[in-house]
Every structure is written in C-alpha cells, then in structure tokens.
Amino acid sequence: MRWNRNEGDRPSVRLPFTDRAEAGRVLAEWLVPLDLDGAVVLALPRGGVPVAFEVARRLSAPGRPAPLDVLVTRKIGYPRQPELGVGAIAEGGEPVFDHDLLARLSLEEADLAGTVEAERAELVRRVRAYRGDRPLPALKGRSVIVVDDGLATGGTARAALRAVRRRGPSRLVLAVPVGAAETVRAMEREADEVVVLAAPWSFRAVGQWYRRFEQLSDGDVIGLLDRYAAREAAARGTDR
C-alpha cells in the first residue's frame, strides 16, 4: 500500500479537498510513477467518476488515451434501515456480505434475497443508463485501476474488486483520495496495491474531507463519460 509521503515531485495532500476533480488530479500524480501505462480505469459511480476522469486523463499517453469506464455497484441495505449497508453487489460479481454485521443483526443471507434482487434490478438499470449495450472493456491480462471518491465501510469497493478479479487482470489497483484507516488496511487483502492519499483515524463520512461534495446524478455521470469518449476519439483522430 502507498501512503501519502512528500516524495520527489509528488504534490502534498491538504485536507479537505476542494472537490472531487481536485482530489482526482492529486491522486493521479501519485499513480503516475507506478508504471500503469495502458491500465483500464474503472470508476465506481456516481462519486468516483469525477475522480477517475482526472486519473485517466493524466495517465493517457499521446495518441493513446487510458480507457475510462464505470463499474456499477449497489449497496445491499438492512431492510429495516436501508442506509445501513450489510453487503454490496457489483456488475459481473456475486453479493458480498458483512458476515459479522449480519450476525449482530441476527440475519442470514437468505433473509436478504428480496433486497438483493431489487438491487440487481437497479444495477441493471444503471448499467444500461451509463453504458447502453456496450460491454465493459476487456480486463483479462491488463492492469486495472478501480477508483472511488473515498472509502468509509468499503463494502462497495470490496464487491467491485472481487468482480474485477474474476475477469483475470494482471494487476489490480484500488485508488482513492481518502479512506477510513481500518477500511484501507482491510482492502490490502482485496487488491494487489492500494493507493490512498490520506487515511485519518477520525472518520465519520467521505464528505467531511471535501469542501464541495454535491450529490451527482445519472446525467452527471453520463456527461463525464461522454466528454472522455470525445477526448478519446479526438486523441485517436477518429469519430466516436
């Protein structure tokens, strides 16, 4: 895992970040030395997309833009308190549950079957909204960077990393601007490398580490993906 150190020409990290775009630009500078040319950048929507946009832009070489796409995830909430995540699911993967939390709530995975199916349906809807009929880029044998705007409990990131791992990448990197220290350490078991700029122990929510942390819409996500696709097409000298 790489922690924030003032090494070489890498920018120092000052919290809070102004917004997700600034966080993405700083994060990208910490990724540049890792020899990730040609890596596929996968953003966890919605909040991870502005961060990943800056990462992919910085990692692009002349005439060879880094592929950018989304990997859609959904939280599986406790039915009585939906905001309490007891698991998560990512496209192409199976549900990943927090079994310690399930035990404390006296729940079995089977008790959440209805919730899981509802989240699968919403996941399919979002995949269609963001990508249409276009599949994910090929990941087998390639470096893949999974990007989010932060890590709180890490449930969706864990589900995303396991879904990507099933596709056979040669190297799997998780990159986030900020994360709860315990969660960041837990992610070391899920990725080949975790790059985090700051991992404070006093961590209530991802949004506390940003001055501007507005909620994003599906339209915001699609707009950023379209902007990047236009940039890719221009770099390659082709029409989209």
Rank of each mutant, 00 (worst) to 15 (best):
Asp98Arg: 12
Ala90His: 05
Thr115Ser: 10
Thr115Gln: 10
Leu105Met: 06
Gly85Gln: 08
Asp98Val: 10
Val96Asp: 07
Glu83Trp: 13
Leu107Val: 06
Thr115Ala: 15
Glu91Trp: 08
Leu84Ile: 10
Glu119Val: 08
Leu84Pro: 05
Asp98Glu: 15
Asp98Ile: 05
Asp111Phe: 06
Glu117Met: 09
Val86His: 15
Glu94Phe: 02
Phe97Pro: 05
Ser106Gln: 15
Leu101Pro: 07
Glu119His: 01
His99Thr: 13
Ala103Leu: 04
Glu119Asp: 14
Thr115Lys: 01
Ala118Tyr: 04
Ala113Phe: 03
Leu105Lys: 03
Leu105Gln: 07
Ile89Gln: 04
Val86Glu: 10
Pro82Ile: 02
Glu108Lys: 10
Gly92Tyr: 09
Thr115Tyr: 00
Val96Glu: 12
Pro82Met: 07
Val86Gly: 13
His99Ser: 08
Ala118Arg: 12
Val86Asn: 14
Gly114Leu: 04
Glu83Met: 11
Pro95Met: 12
Arg104Trp: 00
Pro95Cys: 05
Ala103Thr: 15
Glu108Ser: 12
Asp100His: 14
Val116Phe: 00
Ala110Ile: 14
Asp100Gln: 14
Asp100Lys: 06
Glu108Phe: 06
Glu108Met: 05
Pro95Phe: 05
Gly93Cys: 08
Phe97Asp: 10
Glu119Gly: 02
Glu117Trp: 02
Glu94Arg: 13
Leu112Ser: 01
Ala88Phe: 00
Leu112Asn: 03
Glu109Thr: 15
Asp100Trp: 02
Ala90Cys: 13
Glu119Lys: 03
Glu83Gln: 11
Asp111Pro: 00
Phe97Ile: 11
Glu108Gln: 09
Glu91Gly: 05
Glu94Lys: 14
Ala103Gln: 15
Glu108Ala: 14
Ala88Trp: 06
Glu109Pro: 05
Ala110Trp: 06
Pro82Thr: 13
Ala110Gly: 08
Ala90Met: 08
Val116Ile: 14
Thr115Ile: 14
Leu112Cys: 06
Gly114Lys: 02
Pro95Asp: 15
Leu84His: 07
Gly85Thr: 00
Pro95Arg: 01
Gly92Phe: 07
Asp111Gln: 00
Gly87Asp: 10
Ser106Ile: 00
Asp111Ile: 11
Ala103Gly: 02
Asp100Pro: 02
Ala90Arg: 03
Leu107Gln: 05
Arg104Tyr: 06
His99Ile: 10
Phe97Lys: 02
Leu112Glu: 03
Glu117Ser: 13
Pro95Tyr: 07
His99Phe: 09
Ser106Cys: 08
Ile89Asn: 05
Gly85Leu: 03
Glu94Cys: 00
Pro82Asn: 11
Gly114Ala: 13
Asp111Ser: 07
Gly85His: 04
Gly114Cys: 03
Ser106Ala: 15
Glu91Ile: 11
Ala113Tyr: 04
Gly85Lys: 01
Phe97Arg: 01
Arg104Pro: 00
Leu112Ile: 06
Glu109Lys: 08
Asp111Tyr: 02
Gly87Pro: 09
Glu109Trp: 00
Val116Asn: 01
Asp111Met: 03
Asp100Glu: 15
Gly93Lys: 03
Leu107Ile: 08
Glu83Lys: 15
Gly114Pro: 02
Ala113Pro: 02
Gly85Ile: 08
Gly85Val: 07
Leu107Tyr: 04
Leu84Ser: 04
Leu112Asp: 04
